[in-house]
Computed example of a mutant assay.
Amino acid sequence: MIIEFEGEVFLWDARADVAMHLTAVPPELSDDIREIPRPYRGFGSVRVIARVGCSEWKTSVFPDKKTGTYVLPLKKSVRDAENLMDGGPVLVRLEVLDG
């Protein structure tokens, strides 16, 4: 399954000691991912290949209990390479590997 969406970059506020930036998969696309039959993985994560601009990497999306969506971590090297800023837009392509 391949999904594309535009999201907003935001700082994870669950832990003040970790400066992790994320973007949220829209609710309807999160529902589509949730419906894929797959074995349970740690934290309910789902393995993906993510692409933002020219940057591509293997990672996982994680369920966010607060919003009911999946979130994608945006590592610093990707944010730097693609000039992503906190609060700014990000165009994401995800290839779901689990399922």
Rank of each mutant, 00 (worst) to 15 (best):
Ile2Asp: 12
Ile3Phe: 08
Ile3Thr: 01
Glu6Gln: 11
Glu8Arg: 15
Val9Lys: 08
Val9Ala: 08
Phe10His: 09
Leu11Ser: 11
Leu11Ile: 14
Leu11Cys: 13
Trp12Cys: 11
Asp13Thr: 15
Asp13His: 14
Ala14Trp: 14
Asp17Ala: 12
Val18His: 07
Met20Tyr: 12
His21Leu: 15
His21Ile: 12
Leu22Val: 13
Leu22Glu: 05
Thr23Asp: 07
Thr23Gln: 02
Ala24Gly: 05
Val25Gln: 01
Val25Lys: 01
Val25Glu: 05
Pro26His: 06
Leu29Ile: 04
Ser30Leu: 05
Ser30Gly: 03
Ile33Val: 11
Ile33Asn: 01
Glu35Thr: 00
Glu35Leu: 11
Ile36Arg: 10
Ile36Asn: 03
Pro37Leu: 10
Arg38Asp: 14
Pro39Phe: 14
Pro39Glu: 15
Tyr40Asp: 14
Arg41Gly: 08
Gly42Trp: 10
Gly42Leu: 09
Gly42Arg: 10
Gly42Asp: 12
Phe43Gln: 07
Gly44Asp: 05
Ser45Tyr: 11
Val46Ser: 04
Val46Phe: 07
Arg47Gln: 07
Arg47Gly: 03
Val48Leu: 05
Ala50Ile: 01
Arg51Thr: 06
Val52Asn: 03
Ser55Pro: 00
Ser55Cys: 04
Ser55Lys: 05
Trp57His: 02
Lys58Ala: 04
Lys58Val: 00
Thr59Asp: 08
Thr59Gly: 06
Ser60Thr: 07
Phe62Asp: 02
Pro63Ser: 05
Asp64Tyr: 08
Asp64Thr: 04
Lys65Ala: 08
Lys66Glu: 11
Thr67Cys: 08
Thr67Leu: 10
Thr67Ala: 06
Gly68Thr: 02
Val71Pro: 02
Leu72Glu: 07
Leu72Tyr: 10
Leu74Phe: 11
Lys75Leu: 10
Ser77Glu: 13
Arg79Pro: 06
Arg79Val: 07
Asp80Ala: 12
Asp80Leu: 14
Glu82Pro: 03
Asn83Ile: 03
Leu84Ile: 12
Met85Gly: 04
Gly87Val: 13
Gly87Gln: 15
Pro89Ala: 14
Val90Thr: 09
Leu91Asp: 03
Arg93Cys: 04
Glu95Ala: 06
Leu97Glu: 03
Leu97Thr: 00
Asp98Val: 11
Gly99Trp: 13
Gly99Gln: 13
